[in-house]
């Protein structure tokens, strides 16, 4: 067991050559490959981190935008809801007002219609009542009834109060001292005598007017008086007939319902001028 120094030197040289060879063909390439890979991985990681950061930033931006969008949407939605509610309230109010107006107009129209109907019923009833009454009285009119009417007229003439008597005397004295007696039928002589007696008694009774003791009587027949009698002296008329009662009743009805006489009603009345009822302005004897 000896050391061969030539072999030792040769092995040392061999070893250093081997060191160079392995550094050249083994360590450097492998270490370089490892370094390159680490650098590449580091670059990829860095790139990934940068992309992650960018993605996070973009995510944050999108989240902020989304939040802003949500806020705007909620605001717009709330605004639209408010506007819709306001519009709905306004439309409802308008519809309610129009409905109220329509209802009021309809109620007024119905009321008007009802009133018109009532008036028409009243008017027709009145006309029919008048027509029936007048027809009945005309049918019942006769000389006996005429006589009875004259007697009632004479009695009322005699019972004239002071004011009525003065008006009669004033009208009689201002005229030509003639009296016109109108009746539905021609009066008999006795009835004419009784009338003239009653008038003379009235004229001669104090305070009497001088020159009026012998008035002139003019007798006329007027069938429209309906069993009545009328004494006219100048502008004064004194009489009694059933037509006067009917006119008085019609006047009272008009006072109760002033709107009774309408345009259509007047037209209707105009068409019925042939009606025998006469609205003569004659003061009824009963006041």
């Amino acid at each position: 067991m000896q050391i061969n120094w030539f072999t030792v030197i040769a092995q040392m040289i061999n070893f250093f050559i081997l060191v160079w060879l392995l550094k050249r063909f083994l360590y450097k390439p492998v270490l370089k490959a490892i370094d390159d890979r680490e650098k590449r991985i580091a670059a990829q990681l860095q790139d990934a981190a940068a992309k992650e950061a960018a993605a996070k930033q973009q995510g944050d931006e999108y989240r902020l935008k989304q939040e802003a969008f949500d806020r705007d949407r909620a605001s717009l939605l709330q605004k639209a809801v408010d506007e819709g509610n306001a519009e709905r309230r306004r439309l409802m109010e308008t519809a309610r007002k129009e409905s109220g107006d329509l209802r009021a107009a309809l109620e007024r129209s119905l009321e008007q219609e009802k009133e018109n109907t009532n008036r028409e019923i009243v008017r027709m009833t009145q006309n029919e009542v008048f027509a029936i009454a007048k027809k009945t009285l005309e049918d019942l009119a006769s000389s006996g009834l005429e006589e009875q009417s004259v007697r009632i007229f004479i009695r009322r003439l005699r019972s004239l109060d002071g004011t009525g008597k003065q008006a009669f005397l004033a009208a009689f004295g201002a005229e030509t001292h003639s009296l016109t007696v109108k009746s539905a039928f021609d009066l008999s002589g006795s009835l004419r005598q009784e009338i003239e007696t009653a008038v003379r008694d009235l004229l001669t009774a104090p305070p009497a007017i001088p020159g009026t003791a012998a008035p002139a009587f003019v007798y006329e027949t007027a069938p429209q008086l309906v069993s009545g009698i009328e004494l006219a002296a100048g502008g004064y008329k004194l009489g009694w007939n059933i037509e006067a009662y009917l006119a008085s009743m019609e006047k009272q009805l008009k006072e109760i319902n002033p709107n009774q006489v309408t345009e259509p009603e007047k037209k209707i009345n105009g068409n019925k001028e042939t009606n025998p009822v006469n609205n003569k302005e004659t003061a009824p004897s009963n006041g």
């Binding site: 061999n14 083994l26 492998v30 490959a33 390159d36």
Partner: peptide
């Protein structure tokens, strides 16, 4: 030495830095 050198050269001549 020849074995190590040749083997190293054969292996490292196509090294890749990929994954």
């Amino acid at each position: 030495m020849a074995l190590l050198s040749v083997a190293s050269w054969l292996i490292t001549r196509r090294l890749r830095a990929d994954i």
